[in-house]
Amino acid sequence: MTAESLSAPYTVEFPFERTVGPKIGTFLGGLRDARLYGVRTERGVLCPPLEFDPRTGAETGALVPLVTTGTVTSWTWVPSRPGDPLPHDFAWALIAIDGTIGALFHAVDVGGEFARMSTGMRVCARWRQDRIGGMRDIECFEVVP
C-alpha cells in the first residue's frame, strides 16, 4: 500500500489593497462613473492605459475620455462557469476601442450564439448597475444595436 498525497480545497485570492497610481487609478475611477478613459502616447491613445508605452518605454501622457464602442480584433468562445460575467456561453475578446491603438480584453455577449461572433464586429460596453471601480464594472460588451 502506498499513501496518496494529501490534498485540501483552497481559494485563490489577491487580498491586498494598494494604490494603483494616477493613470490606472483614474481609469478605474472612471469605470465606477461609467466612463472609459485612455492615455495619450506619441503613437496614439492606449486603452487600457499603461504608465509607460510598451513600444518605446516613454512615460505616457494625459488621460482622455473615450466612447465606449469598439471593434473585436480577436476572440475565443468559452463555456460559462460559476462567477463568469454571463450565465451562458460567451466570448473573451480583444476590443479596439474607437480612437485608440491596441485593444481591451473583456467578455462579449451574443446571447450564447457562437455563430454571431466574428472578427471585426462592432460592440459597445454594457455597464453594471452597482459599480466599485474595477474591471467588472463593465459587465461585458454587446453587439452595437
Binding site: 489577491f14 494603483v20 490606472i24 478605474l28 487600457p48 480584433t73 480577436s74 476572440w75 475565443t76 468562445w77 468559452v78 462557469r81 462567477g83 463568469d84 460575467p85 473573451w92 475578446a93 480583444l94 480584453f105 473583456h106 467578455a107 472578427t119 474595477g134 474591471m135 467588472r136
Partner: peptide, 24 residues
C-alpha cells in the same frame, strides 16, 4: 491584478485569442 486577473479568464483564453489572431 488590475486589468486581467479580476475577469478570471479561462486557463486557455489568452492563447485562444492568439490562435484566432494567427488564423485570421
Amino acid at each position: 491584478p488590475y486589468f486581467l486577473a479580476p475577469l478570471r479568464p479561462h486557463r486557455d483564453a489568452v492563447a485562444g485569442l492568439q490562435a484566432c489572431a494567427a488564423i485570421d
